[in-house]
Amino acid sequence: MLNIGGLNQGVVIDHIKAGGAMKIYEYLNLEKQDCSVAIIKNAKSSKMGKKDIIKIEGPITVDLDMLGVLDPDLTLDIIEDGKITAKRNPRLPAQVTGIIRCKNPRCITSTEQELPHRFRLTNKEKGLYRCIYCEQAYKR
């Protein structure tokens, strides 16, 4: 069993769909943040088979709920003074801009580069986002 030390203050992003950790690492721009990061890939999970985990020691200034757009099933464990003070799924924002990109080659955003990539939550249960321009569902 791989063991990485517990956190004093920070967040554990757990139950990330296997293979999804790097996307989250990039979105949070962790490379440039002043914090220690442990990325665990392909960890065994009784619920998911395989999962990724990211442990971050230190203050995070970005809105972690936005991570739900990338993976609605992940969980956020907030750690303070070495204890989990909150454990929850991300709350899915009704609209997001600039986090995900429309992949539809027929979408106006494919030719007009300055347009912001904006998505609207259309199915809360499934965590489904659709492009506000072409209404294509975002496939993770």
Binding site: E112, Y133, C134
Partner: peptide, 27 residues
Amino acid sequence: RHPKEGAPYVASIHSGIPVINAGDGGH
């Protein structure tokens, strides 16, 4: 009418007159 999906919607955001979508791609 525009081959790109969502183009009339973009137009409507910036338009000072009513925009009618006369067909945008397969949308």
